[in-house]
Design a protein around this nucleic acid. Structure first.
Length: 572
DNA sequence: GCCGTTTTCGGCCCGACTGTTTTCAGTCG
């Protein structure tokens, strides 16, 4: 897939034009095309070969030609033209908050600013503030933001959703206690359950906005207030240095604001386009016919007014959901409370923190009706993997525990390493005694991974293939694997692929998961829990599944026990 | 540069906040 690569070039052209003071709408056209291409599920090269480039939203003949040139020759003349007069170091300045292309262009033209050092110099010697439209306050602000920029990776830094959740939950708990706040919700990419978020958006409904804002900015989780108006507050949070935006709203606009700030941007633009055709205007305060407000209290009301069904936040990416909602044909998505058990967990036997009994009791209290125990196998020595005798002992322990459990069952499993030759780490005689078997690659990420996975999938004892791509969102690209082949084999062998909901894995990701589902492959959402606390990640997995348009009956751990056992029973 | 059930020109999503001014431009989301 070279989509990201092509999108980045278009973004670069947009930035370059921006820094040259070019026509605003031309710049936006490049940026829009980049955004659409970045999120396309199909490969841009394939689209080009099929002659369908201009069918992509936002790509006309001009941009199509540039993409064609790049795909066939490896260069893009337009980009070279644009960057000829803009020094590379000028692009970096765009990463500084409150410093945009117009100002950078001005500083470049009038003061010859070419890089960060120049910028600091002109602020310090006062020539910055002498330019019309700029001043001392702006100078001071920029200087402070330069510090921020230098301390961290810049304003484009993204956080995994699991990284920010704990802090968000603390803040939501604070809001729950507040007497001046009536309702609140997350919005933005967090509400859409994207695997990474750039910032955190929170909406609150209150009749006493001044009081609510004052209260909010005094929360202990807040490091610094960036701006604080009457309806909007931006702050930087402690520990993780992420920006949080709060919007304060009256009841009649709550739905409109939730819709607006949940996004995605592309989804909203689409809705507004539809609204215009109906003679309506949508903004964050409501839907308006001329001056008269005709909807806004709830999102559902607004969608219905536009003649469509309510669209769940996880689908709002302008990937066809609007068209389906208009026809009343949205997919019936898996829901957060459909899950009946966690089937990938570790105990003290290997590298987990809790005993089997503790974990089972927790899972039951969590509302689950079964729990799969899948400790590591011997090959995973770093994780204290189980030898055959340990596994036998564990089987006996689970049998004994099950005898005393009511309305709940512990399932006997293993997370067996897939060895270099593609075989599993236990003999058939012991695998036979288990309810199900997870296979996983934990070493040799570059060694015949595709072939090994295919062979493991052919093994009649294997039930589920864990974290099929092996990526870590924040740090690792994953296995050298031909996922297409692995999926074909899984389909052929009727095996299950895992969506590992551990926040830094989310593997399969939403695109792969959707592809697997379209092929008819069953999926399993698991948290790979090493303690109680990690059960909460299950929601992230469901979020990914919802973003992948997956229905409940495609995920095995939404089934009641009897049906689940039927599905995971060996040899069909 | 893109796009069209007001189509090949003339629009292009919309508003808050800030700092600079005194009506607005830049930046951000």
């Amino acid at each position: 897939m070279r989509n990201r690569e092509v999108a980045d070039l278009l973004f670069k052209i947009a930035d370059g034009l921006d820094l040259s003071g070019e026509n605003f709408f031309k710049i936006r056209a490049y940026r829009k095309a980049g955004n659409v291409i970045k999120d396309l599920p199909e490969d841009i090269e394939k689209i080009y070969k099929d002659g369908n480039l201009t069918n992509i939203e936002g790509v006309g003949s001009g941009i199509a030609k540039k993409i064609e040139e790049y795909l066939t020759t490896g260069k893009m003349t337009k980009l070279e033209e644009v960057t000829k007069d803009v020094p590379e170091s000028l692009f970096n300045l765009l990463n500084i908050r409150d410093l945009g292309p117009r100002t950078i262009h001005l500083l470049h033209k009038k003061l010859g600013v070419n890089d960060l050092q120049d910028l600091k110099k002109v602020i310090q010697n006062g020539s910055f503030s002498e330019i019309e439209g700029l001043g001392d306050k702006k100078a001071e602000k920029i200087l402070e933001n330069i510090k921020f920029y230098e301390e961290r990776t810049g304003k484009d830094r993204r956080f995994t959703i699991g990284e920010v959740m704990p802090m968000v939950e603390e803040i939501l708990a604070n809001l729950k206690k507040s007497k001046s706040v009536k309702r609140f919700s997350t919005a933005g990419s967090l509400r859409r359950m994207k695997e990474t978020v750039g910032d955190i958006d929170i909406l609150i409904e209150t009749a006493h906005s001044e009081k609510a804002i004052k209260e909010f900015i005094s929360f202990p989780e807040i490091k610094k207030v960036l701006e604080a108006g009457k309806t909007k507050v931006s702050v930087m949070l402690k520990d993780i240095d992420i920006q949080m935006d709060i919007r304060v709203l009256p009841a009649e606009s709550y739905g409109a604001a939730l819709l607006y700030f949940t996004g995605s941007k592309d989804h909203n633009v689409k809705l507004r386009g539809l609204a215009i055709k109906k003679g309506l205007k949508i903004n964050e305060y409501g839907v308006f016919k001329k001056e008269k407000m005709v909807a806004g209290k709830s999102e559902k009301e607004i969608y219905n007014l536009l003649g469509m069904d309510f669209i769940p936040p996880e689908l709002r990416e302008n990937r066809g959901e609007v068209e389906l909602a208009l026809e009343g044909k949205l997919p019936d998505l898996i829901d957060y409370n459909d899950i009946k058990g966690n089937l990938h967990t570790h105990t003290k036997y290997s590298d987990g923190k809790n005993s089997i009994k503790e974990l089972a009791s927790f899972a039951k209290d969590f509302g689950y009706s079964y729990l799969g125990i899948t400790d590591h196998s011997a090959q995973a020595a770093y994780a204290n993997g189980l030898k055959e005798d340990d596994l036998k002992k564990q089987i006996d322990e689970i049998d004994a525990l099950n005898e005393n459990l009511k309305d709940f069952r512990i399932l006997k499993g293993t997370e067996s390493d897939i060895l270099p030759d593609g075989s599993l780490d236990f003999k058939d005689e012991i695998l036979e005694k288990l309810d199900f078997v997870i296979g996983a690659i934990h070493s040799g990420f570059k060694k015949n991974v595709t072939r090994r996975m295919e062979k493991a999938l052919e093994n009649p004892y294997l039930t589920i293939l864990a974290h099929p791509t092996g990526r870590l969102i924040s740090s690792r690209v994953g296995y050298e694997v031909d996922l297409e082949k692995v999926m074909e084999k899984a389909k052929e062998e009727k095996k299950i692929l895992e969506i590992n909901a551990y926040y830094d894995r989310l593997d399969l990701n939403e695109f792969n998961a959707r592809e697997a589902n379209e092929k008819g492959i069953k999926l399993c959402i698991s948290t790979d829990a090493h303690n109680f606390d990690m059960f909460k990640w299950m929601n992230l997995g469901v979020g990914i599944a919802r973003r992948a348009w997956i229905p409940s009956n495609s995920v095995i751990n939404t089934y009641v026990l009897a049906d689940l056992l039927n599905i995971i029973k060996r040899n069909g």
